[in-house]
Lab assay of single mutants.
Amino acid sequence: MQRVNMIMAESPGLITICLLGYLLSAECTVFLDHENANKILNRPKRYNSGKLEEFVQGNLERECMEEKCSFEEAREVFENTERTTEFWKQYVDGDQCESNPCLNGGSCKDDINSYECWCPFGFEGKNCELDVTCNIKNGRCEQFCKNSADNKVVCSCTEGYRLAENQKSCEPAVPFPCGRVSVSQTSKLTRAETVFPDVDYVNSTEAETILDNITQSTQSFNDFTRVVGGEDAKPGQFPWQVVLNGKVDAFCGGSIVNEKWIVTAAHCVETGVKITVVAGEHNIEETEHTEQKRNVIRIIPHHNYNAAINKYNHDIALLELDEPLVLNSYVTPICIADKEYTNIFLKFGSGYVSGWGRVFHKGRSALVLQYLRVPLVDRATCLRSTKFTIYNNMFCAGFHEGGRDSCQGDSGGPHVTEVEGTSFLTGIISWGEECAMKGKYGIYTKVSRYVNWIKEKTKLT
């Protein structure tokens, strides 16, 4: 034993070699072989497995989906700052455009905790909710729209109204504003409101030439003092309507412009014939205590009207009353817009006519005020429907199939267009061939041609 100890002390290297040989010859039971080890760690190889990531292109799944990435790591994937920024906006807080917040056709661009709407022409605001041009839906104005110097929408209202708090709607500024039905039992019968379409306001006024200088022999019209197929109006439903009495009662109609003036057809009036105007009328054979009678003290036909040349060209006249009318729910003026808007309103496509005229061709006159909704007829169809001249200051309205029309005794009465609950004068009943005849239409004086003249002559002093 002493000898062994001496050998170990003198030859430590020998001992180490012996131990190493023993270990190498022993069977290893701690580690699995290569094949079995792979069965336990069965993990798919990654895209760049075996390579240094710093030297390969980034992978979106590896960089940002398996674990949260930084902007720089995302930049490695896209290799483009702009594309990385677009991805980053949604990656950080989701897609803010998912709810489609942009209105009126706006395009949404996502941002971090926010979004941006790219608005089409005519709109602005956070969600493109603000109209900035009158060309689109009248700028959301209830009545009139004008573009300011910086191309912003400025709404306005006709006389007797003021802008509401929203700067879009119009509200009454006087007790009985024009064009409004205020009798409670008839307010439910107000005709369907007309909503502004998209309009090209630059070209809204037709490029028409008034044929002022045409000389033409007097034409022989049949029954051209021209509501057939209409309905009984309720008291106060058309408070701007008046009836004219002269040699015979209810020979023509008219509309209240203001307390002192009536507008009617020029062919209705004769110099030297006494005319009485009755406002607030409903049943011409009954006294309903809503009527107001006034005498006409002055007749002003349009300066281009000449019955000797043509009885229905420039067929418009103004009547001055001896005493002002007292405005109330049964006696209310009709609204008159400017030339541009009167023309736009007419193009809405349908209007209402009213009167006490004959209820059928050569038949009896109506006792109760009649009204009828009539569609506008395109000019080409209008011209083809008659052998008589249709001037540019006239328009056609009615039904091709016949059966409904204005008729004798309705002449001078109103053709009105309702705009968001307020009625505007767009025409004056003038003439036609018979009444409600198939293929024939009622012919009306186009008020847009005469609004400046009306307003100039009827100013209240």
Rank of each mutant, 00 (worst) to 15 (best):
R3Y: 12
R3G: 15
N5Y: 09
A9Q: 14
E10H: 11
E10V: 15
G13M: 09
G13V: 13
L14K: 05
L14W: 14
I15E: 03
I17L: 14
C18L: 14
L19N: 02
Y22Q: 12
L24A: 14
E27I: 02
C28G: 14
L32S: 15
D33C: 04
N38L: 11
N38R: 11
K39I: 10
K39A: 12
I40N: 04
I40D: 02
L41V: 06
R43T: 02
P44V: 15
K45R: 09
N48H: 01
G50W: 03
K51R: 10
K51E: 04
E54H: 00
F55L: 15
F55H: 13
Q57C: 00
N59P: 00
L60I: 13
E61Y: 03
E61G: 03
R62M: 01
R62S: 04
R62C: 00
E67G: 00
K68T: 07
K68Y: 05
C69T: 00
E72H: 05
E72F: 04
E72Q: 07
E73G: 01
E76G: 02
E76Y: 00
E76L: 01
F78V: 04
F78P: 02
E79P: 06
N80F: 02
E82Y: 05
R83F: 07
T84N: 03
T85A: 12
E86W: 06
F87W: 14
W88L: 04
K89A: 12
K89H: 12
Y91D: 04
D93V: 11
C97V: 03
P101G: 04
L103I: 12
G106P: 03
C108D: 02
K109S: 08
D111H: 11
I112R: 14
N113K: 13
N113T: 12
N113I: 07
C117E: 02
W118Q: 14
W118N: 14
W118A: 13
P120M: 09
F121T: 14
F121L: 13
G122W: 04
G125R: 03
L130P: 06
L130D: 14
K137V: 11
R140I: 08
Q143E: 02
C145I: 02
K146H: 07
N147Y: 10
S148P: 08
A149C: 06
A149Y: 12
V154N: 09
V154P: 04
T158C: 07
T158F: 04
E159V: 08
G160W: 02
L163T: 06
N166R: 02
Q167L: 14
S169R: 10
E171P: 03
A173G: 07
V174M: 07
P175Q: 06
F176I: 10
C178T: 01
C178H: 00
R180G: 03
V181K: 07
S182R: 10
S182E: 07
S182N: 10
Q185I: 12
S187G: 12
S187Q: 12
A192T: 14
E193P: 15
E193D: 14
D200G: 12
Y201I: 15
S204E: 14
I210F: 09
I210Q: 13
L211H: 14
L211R: 06
D212Y: 14
D212P: 07
I214K: 11
S217F: 11
S220A: 11
S220Y: 07
N222T: 13
D223M: 12
V227C: 09
G230R: 10
D232M: 15
D232E: 15
P235E: 07
P235H: 07
P235W: 07
Q237S: 07
Q237A: 07
P239H: 00
Q241N: 15
Q241A: 15
V243Q: 07
L244K: 01
N245F: 06
N245V: 10
G246N: 09
K247I: 10
V248R: 13
D249E: 14
D249Q: 12
A250Q: 11
G254D: 00
G254Q: 00
I256Q: 00
I256Y: 00
V257I: 05
V257A: 03
V257G: 01
V257L: 06
N258D: 04
E259A: 10
V263R: 00
H267K: 06
C268T: 00
E270S: 06
E270L: 13
G272T: 10
I275R: 01
I275L: 14
T276Y: 06
T276R: 09
T276K: 07
A279P: 01
G280Y: 02
G280A: 04
H282C: 06
N283D: 12
N283I: 09
I284K: 08
E285F: 11
E288L: 06
H289N: 15
T290Q: 10
E291D: 05
K293M: 05
R294K: 04
I297M: 08
H303L: 05
N304I: 04
I309D: 08
N310I: 03
N313I: 09
N313R: 11
H314R: 02
H314P: 02
I316H: 01
L321M: 07
L321E: 00
E323A: 12
P324Q: 05
P324R: 05
P324C: 04
L327C: 04
L327E: 03
N328S: 10
V331M: 01
I334L: 06
C335E: 00
I336W: 00
A337F: 01
Y341D: 06
Y341P: 04
Y341S: 09
T342W: 01
I344C: 05
I344T: 11
F345L: 08
F348G: 12
G349H: 08
S350Y: 10
Y352W: 05
W356L: 08
W356R: 09
G357R: 15
R358C: 05
R358I: 06
F360Y: 15
K362R: 15
K362S: 11
K362D: 12
G363P: 11
L367P: 15
L367A: 13
L372T: 12
P375E: 05
V377A: 06
V377I: 13
V377G: 03
R379V: 10
A380L: 08
L383S: 15
L383V: 08
R384M: 11
T386R: 08
T386Y: 11
F388Y: 13
T389C: 06
T389L: 10
I390H: 11
Y391E: 14
M394K: 04
M394W: 06
F395P: 01
C396S: 02
G398P: 04
F399L: 11
F399H: 10
E401I: 09
G402Y: 11
G403W: 15
G403F: 11
R404G: 15
S406G: 15
C407H: 05
D410T: 15
G412L: 12
G413S: 15
H415T: 00
H415A: 02
V416L: 05
T417V: 12
T417H: 03
V419Q: 05
V419M: 08
S423N: 15
T426C: 01
G427M: 00
E433P: 10
E434I: 08
E434S: 14
C435A: 04
K438W: 10
K438H: 15
K440C: 12
G442F: 05
I443H: 05
V447L: 08
V447F: 01
S448Y: 04
R449K: 07
Y450D: 02
V451H: 04
W453F: 05
E456A: 09
E456W: 06
E456K: 10
K457A: 09
K459Q: 15
K459V: 11
T461N: 14
